[in-house]
């Protein structure tokens, strides 16, 4: 059994698309609740700590409470602030929209951790090998340039060209360092390009190397994702996931609603369940030793 992030990057990216897009665009309180539970659980089992959540917790309430103070639609009036009614509907809409935004942020937090630059490059490479090459070269240049900036900076300091007590002078010094870096980087880049041409880049068809294979488990994960997503979208297409907040909260309810929500539950909890079962298996194996 392999961990969720070890699947083929395209499969993982498709799973993320399948889970994030409905969370972003189907505004249904139950679906949004599932999305936030799934994303926070995944984040928690992945990092195994509760740190770094406070800011999002505060943000959640801030965004949620923004809405009832600006929107006064809705029939259930809770109380008045400066003669403006605060309604239950607007309050609940605020909480739903806020949960939607925070859950998408959490999905992307785990996305950034799982899709490292090489895996993202693989996904990009499937769209355009040429673009993937530019991206990978730029990615390599970022640390190279940072190192070169440090070198130039040090030599400028050693030459006595630096004054840091004056803000304008410090900024001008920064710009000078940057300017030196630009000259070096462009010349260096042209040398690289000439070297590539000399070795025959662009002569034949471009092949694209990657260490990722599309295995049986990827096929299974892909099939499961597509089936669950299909059930969810079928529910959305059949108006089973309609919910409106104003003027009064109304939602449609049919067996299809339950099916769609169950499908989304399975979809959102997939990596968490995967991770937990994997850890149990590992602990069981350890206890046998």
């Amino acid at each position: 059994m392999k961990s969720f992030s070890e699947y083929n990057p395209i499969t993982v990216a498709l799973w993320y698309a399948a889970v994030i897009l409905p969370a972003m665009f189907i505004l249904h309180p139950a679906l949004t609740a599932l999305s936030i539970v799934g994303s926070v659980l995944l984040h928690t089992v992945r990092t195994k700590s509760l740190r770094g959540n406070l800011i999002y917790f505060i943000l959640f309430f801030a965004i949620a409470l923004l809405n009832p103070f600006f929107y006064h639609n809705g029939v259930t009036i809770l109380f008045f602030v400066n003669d403006n009614p605060i309604t239950l509907e607007a309050l609940l809409y605020g909480f739903t929209a806020s949960a939607m935004i925070i859950s998408v942020i959490y999905w992307f937090r785990s996305f950034s951790a799982m899709m490292t630059s090489d895996r993202l490059l693989y996904v990009f490479g499937s769209a355009s090998p040429k673009l993937a090459l530019i991206l990978s070269m730029a990615l390599r240049y970022v640390p190279l340039f940072s190192l070169q900036i440090k070198k130039v900076n040090d030599s400028q300091k050693a030459l006595g060209l630096y004054r840091e007590d004056n803000a304008i002078d410090a900024l001008r010094g920064r710009v000078r360092v940057f300017s030196i870096l630009v000259t070096w980087a462009l010349e260096n880049g042209v040398t690289t390009a000439d070297s590539m041409t000399a070795r025959g880049y662009g002569v034949g068809r471009r092949t694209y190397f990657s260490i990722y294979r599309f295995t049986r488990s990827d096929r299974i994960l892909l099939a499961v994702t597509l089936i669950l997503e299909g059930l969810l979208l079928a529910g959305a297409a059949l108006d089973a996931l309609k919910f409106s907040f104003y003027p009064a909260m109304t939602g449609t309810w049919s067996p299809m609603t339950a099916v769609s929500l169950a499908a989304y539950t399975a979809l959102a909890l997939l990596p968490t369940i995967h991770r937990v079962t994997e850890e149990f298996a590992w602990k069981r194996l350890l206890s046998r030793v």
Partner: peptide
């Protein structure tokens, strides 16, 4: 051209740095 392509990579890295 290869040179043009590399200059795009260089400028992209510049912007990120």
């Amino acid at each position: 051209g290869n040179r043009r392509m590399i200059i795009v990579a260089v400028m992209t890295a510049m912007a990120v740095v």
